[in-house]
Design a binder for these strands. Structure first.
Lengths: 213, 213
DNA sequence: TCTAATTTGTGAACAAATTCACAAGCACTC
DNA sequence: GAGTGCTTGTGAATTTGTTCACAAATTAGA
């Protein structure tokens, strides 16, 4: 399969969000034009994005909402459950662990780790915060597929290395550092400072343009 | 000035991060090659990125670390303080409000709002959570320049409209919705679901490539 | 002062992503 | 079953972003 652009994947997520919304309202068909309007892009872009994966619509008619949303879930890998562990039981970890939209999409938080003795043992909903020394052993036993890295910047690379050697192949990183990982491990970094700097850049330089993605 | 690509702005943030790090360690000069290695890009990319804003280096020598970091701070609009208000006093709001890196970079959280009576009045460090009905009046009085939107998805668009009509020109949105804003208001959206979906897509489809940005 | 070793800045070549534009397919009507 | 009105799917054109490659600066050493 041809390499899919990151921007395409991002848009697929957006389309799926709308499809689920209108599906819940009972809408049965939609068009590339609808999806474009709601997602802030163009209808040609929507069709091109979808065309990388097949042809899901009917000419003259549009797309079946249940079918397209199911296909998108499949493409994005959401037809199954994913076991997530959170490393770093601070505020960000807490916000994520109790984020409902998480479970809705099939992400099951099945482990939380920290190395602070004050936090170890506390209950977070159904899971108990465990000592980070158990990470490797638990990863093997529980089969975590995604690790959320929410530790201080100084520890991030060291913990990331442990995550990788524990065999986990996807990391969502909240530490404000550029992690270096071996090929074959998927990484996404969410960096608040960077987001704010994009805003201040916009405020200062192009006093204006809407720089939504 | 020519329109600057979003990817360029993102990389400038990354370069600045490294410059501040090595500046703190007393390093005085660096090269496009150093910055590239640390930032996971190429030296040509670094030089091209910088070239949009001027020429800051010396041929044969490289860049002065203090000078370049100062120029980047200027370009990114970090040479001044920014007044930030947080709307939604939940976990995400809390995590942001006490994030130290925030203040370091000149972002001053000077207001927190919620509409839940149980939260209104509680102290968050130096600020007190206020009733969201006061947002517009306070925005005029305090001059907030950036709003962090951390409310549930259902309320996000409505609150965003109020932020805009209060005259705030930049929004950092954590609600998992595609906001529609008038031109001239800068928007960045951080969407956990989307990040996770990019990871699951990578796990399912190209079992492997490192999709770090 | 000349030569060698660096490293920047940038036009030109290349690659990637987006938009255009239109043929092809489908539903509905007459 | 021919005509009309829509909407998809997709090559081609265009635009945007990245990489190449090299002249121009600069330092250091002889």
């Amino acid at each position: 399969m041809r390499r899919i652009a990151e921007s395409t994947v991002r848009r697929l997520s957006i389309y799926l969000g709308f499809l689920e919304e209108i599906e819940a309202r009972g809408v049965l068909t939609t068009s590339s034009d609808d999806l474009a309007r709601l997602g802030g892009t163009t209808s040609a872009q929507v069709r091109k994005d979808l065309s990388f994966f097949g042809s899901f619509g009917k000419r003259g008619l549009g797309y079946s909402v249940p079918e397209l949303s199911s296909r998108l879930r499949e493409i994005l890998g959401l037809e199954r459950q994913w076991k997530v562990c959170i490393i770093g039981a601070g505020k960000i970890g807490a916000a994520l662990a109790r984020y409902a939209g998480f479970a809705e999409r099939g992400f099951v938080v099945s482990g939380v780790y920290d190395s602070d003795p004050k936090k170890i043992g506390s209950k977070w909903g159904p899971v108990t915060v465990r000592d980070a020394v158990h990470l490797e052993r638990d990863a093997a036993a529980n089969g975590y597929q995604i690790a959320v890295l929410a530790v201080p910047a100084e520890e991030a690379q060291r913990v990331a290395d442990r995550i990788v050697s524990a065999g986990i192949k996807a990391i969502l990183n909240f530490a404000p550092v550029q992690l270096s990982l071996p090929n074959g491990v998927a990484l996404r970094t969410v960096n608040m400072a960077m987001e704010l700097e994009a805003l201040t850049f916009a405020l200062v330089n192009r006093a204006g343009a809407n720089l939504s993605r």
